[in-house]
Structures are given as structure tokens and as C-alpha cells.
């Protein structure tokens, strides 16, 4: 068996292969569902209904998609320049930390000033979080996969320390949680009485901005050039190391927005379970989107839908909601295979 590069990929292939990937995911998950003793059709219907079958379900899916759009964008931007940022989780948490540091009363401004200020500060925190690994990479050739990944654990322990110490809510009955952000620092809800908040709008706008950066600007061009062929980029006079540092700042800032929007828009305070791995799931989202910033929106909604739908399904069909993890993971693998098959033709012998 060998792979031959395709000269061109037809329009149909760019739809059929990903569709095939989703089909393969469904088939594989069906087997597991049957092992769990339920009917796949019922289960998938319940997942779909739980994710998009009602206004409540749909809004819940979009709410869950919001942080995934941010982390997905962070990863897409970094991976495009071949900066393997596995540390969106850490950047998210530090963005959240900055949000509670400034948002719980330390600064008082009207919300039109306070929210942008906190947002900027959170982005800066996330950006600086990734700056360290980026400089280690460009100056000393230290593998950023290792540094960013390990930084996740360091940051989580650091946040845990903060929540047991300086940031601990004195009225929290001893729980490791921060104080709630003041009203002026909260992102308003999109629909009164529902959980969906303006963080989602911010996420969509961010995706569009990132798309414009990648497509239209000098920086985006430089990032793509460095990502596709750093040696050729360097030869052409593109400042490769500087581009990597800029990419890191952008990526870290985007990931931090996930933390900001979860705290200021949804949860109101910081706890250690703020993120159930949004930073890591962002990698899945970015890969499913083939690193396209606008695709990240769709991929994030898809992944969020599976999680939300599976939660609803497990309550009624008695199939563990872990099936969601399996489906997301399988869809990543099949999608990666589909992307490869779009670019290469398999020759048997």
C-alpha cells in the first residue's frame, strides 16, 4: 500500500470524505452503543434531540461551544504556524484568574470600560503564558509540545493554590472558589433568562477577525509561510522567530478569552472545574476545522453538540455519557484520515 499525492482535490471530495468520516464515527459508536445494550437509532436520535431538539438544547450547545471556539482558534492559529500549542488549558485558566483579579471589585468602572479592560488584561495574561515556551523554542530549540503541555499542570496547581489562598472567597464556606465578579464586569446574557451570553458573539467575531488576519494581512501571510516551510521563509527574509513569537501571543490571547468568557459570561467565579478540558478539546476542534478559523465555529458547535446531547441522552437511555468522548475522539481520527485521503490517493501495491 502506498500514498500518491493528488494533483487536485475535487469539490465533491472535499464534502464526501468528511461526510464519510462522520458516517464512520456513527458506525463505530453504534457498535459501542449496542454493547451498552441500547438501540443506536434511539441513542443518536436522543443525542441529536438533546443537542438541537429544542430552544433550550440549542442554546445550551452554543453556550458550551463558546469556550471551544476560543480554544479552537488558539490552536488553529498556532498550528498554522507549526507552533504546537498544547497549553490552551493553562492559558484559559490564567485568563480566568486575571478576570477574577480585576473583576471582583479591584477596579471599578462602568461596564463599557471595565469589560474591555478585563478582556485585554486576560488576553495579555494568556499571551504572556505562551511567550515563555515560544522564547524557549526560538532561542534554545526547546520543544514547545513538552513545555506547553507541562505548563498546564503547573498552572492548574498554581490556580489551586490561589483558590486555597489569596483568591479564596471568604464567604465560600471553605470551598476552593473565588469571589464572584461584580455586575459591571459580567458579560450580559444574549437572551434574558437563558445561559447563552455575549461571549458567544465575541467568539464568532474573534473567528472572523482571525480569518481576516490569516487571509489578508502580512502577519497571517508570514504565519502561513513559516508553518508551511520555515526554511524557505527564513531564506526569503521572513523573520521566522519573530513570527513564532507573534503567533504565540495571538494564540495565548485567544485561549485566555475562553477563560474570560466562561467566568465573566457564564460561571461568575473561578473554580478548579471551570474547564473540563476545553484547552485539549480545542485541539480536536481545530483539527476538525482543518485549521480554518471560520470552520472552527462549526467544529466547536459540532463537538459541543455531541457533549450536550450525550448528557441528555444518558439521562434517558441509560448509556454512559462517556460515549460522547468516544464519538468526539473517533470523529477526530476519522476526520484526520479523511483529510489525508483528500490529499492523497491510496494505491494498493
Amino acid at each position: 500500500m502506498r500514498l500518491e499525492a493528488r494533483a487536485t482535490t475535487s469539490g465533491a471530495a472535499t464534502i464526501l470524505w468528511p461526510a464519510g468520516a462522520i458516517l464512520a464515527t456513527i458506525v463505530f459508536s453504534s457498535v459501542l452503543v449496542m454493547i451498552a445494550g441500547a438501540s443506536p437509532l434511539t441513542v443518536f436520535w436522543l443525542v441529536f434531540k438533546g443537542a438541537a431538539g429544542s430552544q433550550f438544547a440549542l442554546l445550551e450547545t452554543l453556550t458550551r461551544a463558546t469556550p471551544l471556539i476560543f480554544t479552537g482558534l488558539a490552536v488553529a492559529v498556532a498550528f498554522r504556524a507549526r507552533l504546537w500549542n498544547i497549553g490552551a488549558e493553562a492559558q484559559l485558566y490564567l485568563g480566568a484568574v486575571m478576570t477574577v483579579v480585576l473583576g471582583t471589585g479591584a477596579v471599578t468602572l462602568p461596564s463599557a470600560g471595565l469589560i474591555p479592560l478585563i478582556m485585554m488584561a486576560a488576553m495579555l495574561t494568556g499571551a504572556l503564558t505562551l511567550l515563555g515556551p515560544a522564547i524557549l523554542k526560538t532561542r534554545f530549540g526547546v520543544d514547545e509540545v513538552v513545555t506547553t503541555l507541562l505548563l498546564n499542570f503547573i498552572v492548574l496547581l498554581f490556580v489551586s493554590m490561589l483558590l486555597e489562598g489569596p483568591l479564596k472567597d471568604p464567604t465560600g464556606l471553605g470551598w476552593p472558589q473565588s469571589q464572584r465578579v461584580i455586575a459591571d464586569a459580567q458579560l450580559p446574557r444574549l437572551i434574558k433568562g437563558k445561559r447563552l451570553h455575549y461571549g458567544f458573539v465575541l467568539a464568532v467575531v474573534s473567528a472572523i477577525v482571525v480569518w481576516v488576519i490569516m487571509k489578508k494581512t502580512v502577519l497571517g501571510y508570514e504565519m502561513r509561510a513559516v508553518g508551511h516551510n520555515a526554511e524557505a521563509a527564513r531564506f526569503a527574509g521572513i523573520p521566522v522567530n519573530l513570527v513564532i513569537v507573534k503567533t504565540a501571543l495571538l494564540s495565548g490571547g485567544l485561549a485566555a478569552l475562553a477563560g474570560f468568557s466562561e467566568v465573566a459570561g457564564l460561571k461568575g467565579n473561578l473554580t478548579l472545574d471551570l474547564s473540563p478540558g476545553y484547552g485539549y478539546t480545542g485541539i480536536v476542534v481545530a483539527m476538525l476545522a482543518m485549521l480554518n478559523p471560520l470552520g472552527v465555529i462549526a467544529a466547536a458547535i459540532f463537538v459541543a453538540g455531541i457533549f450536550v446531547g450525550a448528557d441528555a441522552m444518558s439521562r434517558s437511555a441509560n448509556v454512559p455519557s462517556y460515549i460522547a468522548q468516544v464519538m468526539v475522539a473517533t470523529s477526530l481520527l476519522t476526520m484526520v484520515a479523511a483529510i489525508m485521503l483528500m490529499r492523497y490517493r491510496v494505491r494498493w501495491r
Binding site: 501571510y221 502561513r224 509561510a225 508551511h228 516551510n229 526554511e231 524557505a232 531564506f235
Partner: peptide
């Protein structure tokens, strides 16, 4: 390896 970026366009 050095002269061109294969995955980018002629214009790029």
C-alpha cells in the same frame, strides 16, 4: 526545501 513554499501559491 529553501526556494519555494510548495503548499503556497505562485503569487504567495
Amino acid at each position: 526545501a529553501t526556494g519555494m513554499i510548495g503548499d503556497m501559491s505562485v503569487a504567495e
